[in-house]
Design a protein around this nucleic acid. Structure first.
Lengths: 249, 249
DNA sequence: CATTATGCTATTGTATGCAACAGAGGAAGA
DNA sequence: TCTTCCTCTGTTGCATACAATAGCATAATG
């Protein structure tokens, strides 16, 4: 009953409910820049420079930064300005926990209710994922596409709010994977996405939910989220230690 | 393991991660005004007037409105300004669906892990709810307190993000209940909250989750969310028709 | 030499000014 | 009378200007 009640087309045409035209543009530009790691975590984001670079005033940059801060992609310290978020391991786990909860809801809503067109769209998307993985190895492009698959699913529920939240969470996950992800992190994700589609075709809701749980477990496991609470510096240096053949006691 | 890992005190001390000082004040003022229905749904919110009323410039009002828009409390149409959100029934259902998913996660995290202090805090809160219901009948105050109970629970998970989302959703639910709620809508909520606390004391996670599901079902049912998809005007006029003894064909 | 005081600079916080757009109301024409 | 166009007002979109704060370098002092 709720398979595609709104605009089911998951495409671009936003519901137009937004703010100023150019403000939105700045927001999107920064968003993409962060997700694709042109702007790396921790990097400072001065209003002046950005505005100058994008040809707009501080006002619009400020507005965009504010929104990005609400969504957790940038950190905004009073009188100290904005910087690209540098999520801690704790925050990373929080994000994944919430994401699991919401994606379960997605599966519950979608299982056994996908139209043929929707299935086709999803399959086309995993095709794109395959291409991206084959071509650009597993750069930011792969991470972005993997996230978009989940956003696509969420949008198909017809629940705009659910969709917005999943999108937000996927953005943050991109950041997190970029920070803590091991090389080859999105390696087998594509196959898992195919399995998800298969599960959704059937009517076994429980199975679909379990599969999504496993998928997200796998994604989490591929990141370095396994280590127990350790001081931030340790987390930061561990990869370098390993790559140099050093082993911390 | 994640019962109270951060600041466990659910009290006031915000993590200080915010923007300008006065901007925040404007935001909070408007937020409260909306939740407590001083500003009713659909009401226009001109930047000038509000700024004048609060003694600040349009800039800060604009910033606050932007944030409120992201959180779904105000609607922001380009070149037409802001107004208090007037959620449709569809949107209301969306909100409740997402809320259910997240509050399940809350129960799962919390069941059997509450400290004595946390239990005491929760019980004190339901006490306040009782007082409010007895005194002010069931005005906005009751609705606000009912929402705060759930926020309190979410904060006890130690998951800041989960907490933020639940807070956002509860705010929207306040709006929704104010719009579509029947009289006496929060009537038995207090007892249900007590039952939730009892369930959390035990270790039966499944039972706790089921109870929360039932509670939210009940809350939803108390609103007018039952009627099937109907034209907006109809929803709007139905209560008036009933109160006048008229029955639409 | 260490330490504290102090002015400078760079960046944010806030207010205001100007241009653009939407909508209401009236005037002109059919 | 009805329609159409136009002006006119109120409000937003965006840019700029000013005030305030943080951090740093430097200098003064024990």
């Amino acid at each position: 009953m709720s398979g595609d009640r709104k605009s089911s087309r998951t495409g671009k045409g936003r519901p137009a409910a937004g703010k100023g035209l150019r403000s939105q543009s700045v927001y999107r530009a920064l968003h993409r820049a962060i997700i694709e790691q042109a702007l790396r975590p921790g990097m400072k984001l001065p209003e002046d420079s950005i505005g100058e670079e994008l040809g707009v005033s501080r006002t619009l940059v400020r507005e965009a930064l504010g929104r990005l801060a609400v969504e957790g992609l940038v950190e905004l310290k009073p009188n100290k300005g904005a910087s690209v978020s540098y999520p801690t391991l704790e925050e990373a786990r929080d994000v994944f926990d919430v994401r699991r909860a919401l994606e379960r809801q997605v599966m519950q809503t979608l299982a056994g209710r996908l139209t043929a067109a929707q299935v086709a769209l999803l399959e086309k998307h995993v095709g794109d994922e395959d291409v991206a993985r084959a071509a650009g190895a597993e750069g930011p492009e792969s991470i972005r596409l993997a996230g978009e698959f989940h956003v696509l699913l969420a949008e198909m529920t017809g629940n705009a709010l659910l969709s917005r939240y999943v999108q937000e969470l996927c953005s943050r996950c991109s950041l997190i994977l970029a920070l803590y992800g091991r090389p080859h992190s999105s390696e087998c994700a594509v196959n898992e996405h195919r399995e998800l589609i298969e599960a959704l075709k059937g009517r076994d809701v429980e199975a679909a939910i379990r599969l999504m749980d496993h998928h997200l477990d796998a994604v989490t496991a591929r990141a370095v989220l396994a280590p127990r609470t350790a001081t931030e510096l340790r987390d930061l240096l561990a990869p370098y230690a390993l790559s140099e053949g050093l082993s911390p006691p």
